[in-house]
Amino acid sequence: PLDEWLSPPFEPTVRGDDVFARGASDDKGQTWILVKAVEYLMKRDGRLPVNVKFLIEGEEESGGESIEGLLRERPPELASDAAVVCDSEMFAPGLPTICTGLRGIVYGELHVQGARQDLHSGVYGGAAPNPLMAIAEIVTALKNRDGHILIPGFYDSVAKPSPEEYEAWASLPFDEQAYLEKEVGSTCLTGEPGFTVFERTWARPTMEIHGIRGGFVGEGAKTVIPARAVAKISFRLVADQDPSRVLRQVQQAVEAATPAGVTAEFHLLHAAGPSLVDPANPFIRKAALAMEEVFGRKTVYMRSGGSIPIVGLFQDELRIPSVLMGFGLPDDNLHSPNEKFHLPNFALGLDSVIRYLERL
């Protein structure tokens, strides 16, 4: 909401060591690191130590269909050995971090149709179907109160993290209570029993409801049974899950869970596969060493619960690894009012990318 911003979202404002603006951390500020690193090397040396191609697009949050078409139609122009993406975060301030895994996504709308038109609940309540109630019934048939997804076959291809990953995650400086209080802000954490926070947010698939539209939502009262309702739903996918297969499973599960008196369909808006890279990959190792030199601390490896569709496309279409060198912080308020980017991290990120390019 605009009224929650302390300064205009599209007018970058510096307060203390942070710059506040929409996209400051995700991802204009971090993209600028890459541009300025190349500019510095060109001014200093008159040439670059490696060949560099910039590929910048602005449709990630809406599915990235244009860039997907470009990758599939013109792969020779984009042929590379690796991609460097600054669109992730450090696990903690001052701790150099490389992200090795991203969740994929299937995002769609659940459309439910009941009567031909809205009806008076006093006249027709008890006899007419209610699409909002139907959405509630369908959603609870897809996921239980513990966060376990009930769609048949949904977990069949989920790959477990490696022992090395579990070991690396166990060494991360993580305070679950602080995470609850400072980042989440609810009364307690939720999710599948038997899994750690890292597993639930990085290595387990999820289902989330982002909004429900239908009926009367204005001030005051109106006793209407809506004729139709829509719910926006996403499924985050993990390693080895295929978006097209998950979409079919979701659509079949919706059909099976649809109550009498309504029709329901799940319409895909966009999808992207998960991605996973090996920390032993030489492009990853050189990035880790460059960051260690700049930060003076050993680089740690983590996954991210978010999705960057282009990374999966690089993996599938160009057959190249993505080096996710992120310099954001967990409290940067991505997608929220007062998004920020920590300016010292810009300088450290710039030095890290320069050293990385020099190492290749």
Rank of each mutant, 00 (worst) to 15 (best):
R303E: 08
M325R: 08
L313K: 12
V300I: 13
F327H: 08
Y301C: 02
Q315W: 00
G306F: 11
F327P: 11
Q315R: 14
S322M: 05
G326T: 01
Q315C: 01
M302L: 10
V323K: 07
V323G: 06
I320K: 07
F327G: 06
T299D: 06
G312D: 11
P330A: 09
G326K: 03
S322W: 09
G312C: 01
S322F: 05
M302E: 14
G326E: 03
F314I: 01
I310G: 02
P309I: 12
N333T: 00
S322R: 04
V311M: 06
P309W: 13
I308S: 07
V300W: 09
D316Y: 00
G328E: 03
L318Y: 10
L324Y: 00
S322A: 15
F327V: 03
R297C: 03
Q315E: 14
L318S: 09
R319Q: 13
S322C: 13
N333C: 14
Y301H: 11
Q315Y: 01
N333A: 15
D332W: 08
L334R: 01
M302A: 10
L318E: 07
L324N: 09
P330D: 06
G312E: 05
P330Q: 06
R297V: 01
D316T: 10
D331H: 14
I308F: 10
P321R: 07
E317N: 02
L318F: 12
K298S: 15
E317I: 11
L318R: 10
D332M: 12
S322L: 05
M325Q: 06
Y301K: 05
L324D: 03
P321I: 00
V300P: 02
M302C: 11
P309G: 10
P309H: 12
L313N: 06
P321D: 02
D331Y: 13
S307A: 15
F314N: 13
M302Q: 15
I320T: 10
L318G: 09
Y301M: 08
D331R: 04
I320H: 08
P321G: 05
Y301F: 15
P321W: 03
P321E: 03
L329Y: 08
L318D: 10
K298N: 08
I310Y: 07
S304Q: 12
S307F: 02
V311F: 04
G305F: 03
S307N: 15
D332N: 14
D332C: 12
F314M: 14
G328F: 03
